[in-house]
């Protein structure tokens, strides 16, 4: 019975029962389970992977310590991962292409669609259609586009269209020159809805009087777009861009389904390389090194995010 009673109020002499005094048992009880989960499923795997990258690591276990061999090979002897030259190539370089073109095109198209959608009557319908690819699993989306890109004009929409113009048939996924651009186009198609929806919400938040003021001040619609709308939604733009950068660093499914990294290794990206080296090839130590590279690439993005959240907290 006594245990179920609420703590007596007004006794006031027992310091240990006051919040803030003594060992914070309550904090431990509330935070403990989450902390334990983070430790087991986040901190431990990171440390494990880091050490694994200095092993040959057959079977995913610490075996055959090789020191920096995996790392040296990764950056100097593996043209599938990084080949410096002109033009550079390899999985890491492909990720750079993705970050530059996929992110900028998605943001730009998303912005344009968001601005245009707010000016037509069927805004909800248009945004629904643009958002639709978001609702499709990436693997299904990749399969759809494999059909679109099929070299046979009977199956391939792209070549059917090109055929009308007397061009082709082209095997865009079969040529190292075009494969990355074709894949980036699929990525943009799949993500532009996300960008549109977020940015359109932000654009709606701009007071119409500000836009009218700009119009009276003498701005045309292009100037309003670049000099008023874009700067005023710069924060949501950076949110979208950062999310897309993270998408790119984790990018795997589209590549796996559409090209399997080919032709050759020309469309590999780092997450695909990690999978390819660790699992089919069984080189877990080498795969672990690639995983660590991915983690390192994500750190600046995370720092940027944390800084931004802090800045927002200060503002509000």
């Amino acid at each position: 019975m006594t245990a179920a009673n609420p703590p007596a109020t007004g006794s006031g002499t027992d310091d240990a029962k006051r919040p803030g005094a003594g060992f914070p048992w309550a904090a431990l009880i509330f935070l403990g389970p989450a902390g334990l989960l983070l430790l087991v499923f986040l901190a431990f795997p990171i440390v494990y992977t880091f050490f694994l990258s200095f092993n040959r690591g057959r079977g995913g276990e610490f075996s055959d310590w090789v020191g920096l061999d995996n790392w040296i090979r990764l950056f100097t002897q593996d043209p599938n991962f990084l080949r410096l030259g002109f033009p550079p190539s390899g999985a890491l370089w492909n990720n750079v292409l993705w970050i530059v073109f996929y992110v900028s095109l998605t943001v730009l198209l998303g912005l344009i669609l968001a601005v245009m959608a707010t000016r037509v009557r069927y805004e909800a319908l248009i945004k629904g259609i643009v958002f639709l690819p978001q609702a499709i699993a990436a693997t299904s989306l990749a399969i759809i586009w494999r059909f679109v890109y099929a070299p046979d004009p009977e199956t391939g929409l792209l070549n059917a269209v090109l055929g009308v113009g007397g061009v082709g048939p082209l095997s865009v996924l079969g040529s190292p020159d075009t494969v990355n651009w074709a894949l980036i186009a699929v990525g943009v198609w799949g993500s532009v809805g996300f960008a549109t929806v977020i940015l359109s919400a932000a654009i709606k938040g701009i007071s119409s009087e500000v836009l009218e003021a700009a119009r009276v001040d003498g701005a045309n619609e292009t100037q309003i777009f670049w000099r008023i709308i874009v700067p005023m939604v710069s924060l949501p733009i950076s949110v979208v861009a950062v999310t897309l950068v993270v998408n790119v660093i984790k990018l795997f499914d589209i590549i796996f389904v559409m090209t399997g990294g080919g032709p050759g290794a020309s469309s590999r990206v780092i997450a695909f390389s990690m999978y390819q080296e660790a699992f089919p090839q069984g080189q877990f130590g080498y795969g672990a090194a690639i995983a660590v590279v991915m983690l390192l690439l994500l750190i600046p993005v995370m720092i940027f995010n944390i800084r931004r959240f802090r800045a927002e907290a200060v503002q509000s």
Binding site: S207, E209, V210, E212, A213, V216, I228
Partner: peptide
């Protein structure tokens, strides 16, 4: 030139 109720500054 117009002055708006909400000021409408950039």
């Amino acid at each position: 030139a117009m002055v708006f109720q909400s000021y409408a500054l950039y």
